[in-house]
Nucleic acid binder design. Structure first.
Lengths: 353, 353
DNA sequence: CTCCAGCGCTCGCCTGATACGAGCGCCAGT
DNA sequence: ACTGGCGCTCGTATCAGGCGAGCGCTGGAG
């Protein structure tokens, strides 16, 4: 049909957009994010501030469509940004306004600092609350070192094992034993472990204890073994998990809730966790805010979603990722600083612990 | 119109249903639960086993409708059970088949026994998994007694406080202090608390310590206060909460997911928790399985839902509730024993800890 | 008295037709 | 280079008509 029609504009010779096209793309994306309606040439001519007629704008829009930045959902509707359009938008057109002091303080106030678990949970909650999308936080990687153990006698043959890891996290479990231990035996066993192995990794301990084990009394050895098992599990178990909150918000997003099937795929993704974790881990290698738009994440349940992430650190070392999952059509200029600040606040909260 | 037409049947003179009506109601409910389609007179005549013609059945159905057990969604469709119909069904018509041994074992295997929190979480998960609805568990009421405390020095002025309550639950938090404590000071303070107050409630301790407090060294007193605060919070904080899992399953239920608005109300209810908790608490006063159908719960987000609950116990005392939330149209004869058994398994798992 | 076959009726749903309007592409004129 | 205008494409809304499921009722049979 129009196989020659695209000769009459010089802009498309280079794959880079001229200023006019950029401005129009920018306002188109902004309008679409605001309204959720396909944006027509008339609307663009009104809102671009460029004082061009709709007809002229249509030419530019045709070019933009040809280059894959925008698309028509159907023949006679306005245009909406494609994933590539959003990408260009966030990369070069977006102007983020930083949060004002008040919001930051408010955000900081909502973080519950008294406990790593709570801290992470509240961070996720804050993210979902402020953005009205789903907040995700990957729990901090454990340093997996041993710090302290305590055996507490509950009943004759039931002992409460309390284990403190190097990063100050507490694990506890109940162990059933063959024999009834006396409190002094328990203290003795705990002391032995605490004095000899504080600071080691659990693998280290396991290796070193292999040799000394037969020099110990049989029953004490059993306690040790239990402690080591608990330690192993503490490492692998709480190893790396992703906390999601505010998924419910996504039910309200009409972009998503129109496709019931899509929506369920999305929630299944949340439940499986593992592929999501992979994605978030990947983002923790970069520094600063990172954005996955639509299929860029490589997960098709996220087709119509964007993921905005930022790594957070403890003592200068990246240990996890925070992020927001929402529809591709989200207010990036608001979400980006929110994620950014949350990561920073989380970092500092974890570092000063 | 038919203001006299209901004279020609003697059944409705008494509000109790005759055998035929009961059987028809039973098969109607069963058919509807199985198919999800309004049940017509022809279908009933086929499945009831009564060898009656559709026409005769229509008479009975008319009576049933008049008494409020069934209703037509519109003029020319079959009938569906009303809330009252379901109620009568579960009260007097339902025949529950107990789970077979295999299923019970499988269910038992899925409970993670090593920790109260995990146990509760896995119970909720099991419920949602087996029923494909949402599983809920109210966490066990704490006995709120003090058993053991431990102060662990993390850094100069940061101390990890580990608190064990009477029921063997472990709470931990990090406290920041004015002064740098030595390990021996910490041990001393812990010993003082452990030896003098084990078994008391936190209020007791607070009262008794008021007097002795000024006899203690100032800095030790500070530690005590921190421990007491943590204890108070442990009691109120983890006091009573409801764990929900498998909400996602409800997305797949077409009865619910047709009304997007309803669905969101439902999920909001889940998130607010408090009114749900009230409902579940209420059910913990009864014993055995209890069922709330539709509006019976008094919460209109649950309009089209049923809640099947059963209390669970520790040492013969009810401490919480397990349950399933699903559409009114659920396979009660399966859900009821599942909830029942789960409550029993949870009871025994908690008792033998 | 009980039951049943049949008739007419009511509606919900599906289908096809029509009208409308938004938005685009193209072109000719400035 | 820009713009006004024309024709075209489609999606949506509205409406009418046909279909079919299911019901209520009634008259007749056992």
């Amino acid at each position: 049909m129009n196989f020659m029609s695209h000769e009459h504009h010089n802009t498309h010779a280079s794959s880079t957009l001229n200023d006019r096209a950029q401005l129009l793309l920018k306002t188109l994306v902004e309008r679409y994010i605001a309204d959720g309606q396909p944006v027509g040439s008339r609307a663009l001519s009104k809102f671009s501030g460029l004082d061009l007629s709709p007809a002229s704008i249509r030419n530019v829009m045709a070019d933009l469509e040809e280059m894959g930045f925008i698309a028509s959902p159907h023949t006679s509707a306005g245009r909406i940004p494609t994933a590539r359009g959003y990408r260009f938008f966030v990369d070069t057109l977006l102007t983020v306004k930083p949060l004002d002091r008040l919001e930051i303080n408010q955000l900081e106030g909502q973080l519950q600092v008294d406990n790593t678990q709570k801290l992470v949970a509240s961070a996720s909650h804050v993210l979902s609350d402020l953005t009205h999308f789903a907040g995700v936080v990957v729990t901090p990687r454990r340093s997996s070192g041993f710090r302290h153990v305590e055996f507490l006698r509950l009943a004759d043959k039931r002992i409460l094992l309390i284990l403190v890891t190097a990063d100050g996290d507490v694990q506890n479990r109940i162990i059933h034993t063959e024999k009834a231990y006396s409190p002094s035996e328990l203290t003795e066993a705990a002391n032995f472990l605490n004095q000899n192995f504080a600071g080691c990794t659990f693998e280290d301990i396991r290796r070193r204890i292999q040799n000394e084990l037969r020099q110990l009394r049989e029953d004490v050895a059993q306690l040790m073994a239990a402690a080591l098992n608990a330690g192993d599990q503490a490492v692998s178990d709480g190893a790396e998990d992703v906390v999601i909150s505010g998924e419910i918000n996504l039910l309200g997003i009409d972009d998503l809730s129109s496709n019931m099937g899509k929506l369920r795929d999305l929630f299944n993704l949340f439940e499986r966790r593992t592929s999501l974790l992979q994605l978030l881990d990947q983002s923790s290698r970069a520094q600063g805010v990172q954005i996955f738009i639509g299929g860029e994440a490589g997960l098709q349940p996220l087709d119509e979603c964007s993921v905005v992430t930022a790594p957070y650190e403890v003592d200068g070392k990246v240990v996890g990722t925070v992020g927001v999952i929402g529809p591709t059509r989200m207010a990036y200029e608001r979400v980006i600083p929110i994620v950014d600040i949350t990561a920073k606040l989380l970092s500092s909260a974890l570092t000063q612990r």
